[in-house]
Nucleic acid binder design. Sequence first.
DNA 1: CTGTGTTCCTGTTCGC
DNA 2: TGCGAACAGGAACACA
Length: 290
Amino acid sequence: MPELPEVETVRRGLAPALVGATIALVELRRHDLRLPFPERFAARLQGRRILELRRRAKYLIADLDDAQSLIMHLGMSGSFRIDDETPGAFRRENGKKSAAHDHVVFHIDHGKRIVYNDPRRFGCMLLVATDEIGADKRFRDLGVEPLSDALDVPFLAGAFQGRAAPVKALLLDQRLIAGLGNIYVCEALHRAHISPLRAAGSLVTAGGRPKAPLARLPQAIKDVLSDALRAGGSSLRDHRQIDGSLGYFQHSFRVYGREGAACPTPGCKGTIARVVQSGRSTFYCPACQR
DNA sequence: CTGTGTTCCTGTTCGC
DNA sequence: TGCGAACAGGAACACA
């Protein structure tokens, strides 16, 4: 369930249960996800206290009291839930099905279990020295946080200038902006009325100045992410938030998954189209996104 | 360096 | 109802 708003929602849900708590025991139910778990993963976590739970891009980072950090990525289908340790008080309503892909169980000293479930196993968990995270190859090249002041019009103008790739491809590139994924890129481009197919460089003048549509893009990105965050993220399928409730931003999608629907832009008579760009679905309105 | 395509894995949905 | 194909929120890697 994982673009920036979903990962941040997970972080906020887990933080009260994890920050300041101690990991009593870790159950590893397989030796790898997308990557092998680190050597002695469970042993190295046992007895560690969690000082802080942070997010960078789509990564969750738990800083531990031994100067190491547990880094977690949810991939495409990863999720966390919090269970009571009490043997009888088993999972909530839709029980056994989810247990099939419970790969990691963190037993916390206050008597709860944090369970990581990931059917497709595209997620990963790593252990890295806290002060070396910035130098790690996964983090070294990450771009700006889209909700930070670093994402502004001049930044995008500089990044887009001279680039022939479609603007959608650049927005998905984590080395430029870190945290956007397929849904929110489609949604942001619709809000900015920019065609996802347009060459990124065509949004900048020869002199390197942003053209009018580009001037709308950073705010459109921030708006859609803030709106999604406020809604607790998007729950495709039956993905749940930590507390079991559903994020509801999927009801606010203007284009994603809405092929054939009327464009929601006021006054626009267009119909949402679906095309494939570098192997992934793009949804947009050919009438008001140019 | 740039841009595109493939791959990892399982589950769900869609069309016949 | 059954069955195969298409598709799914990510990102690393191979290749032209």
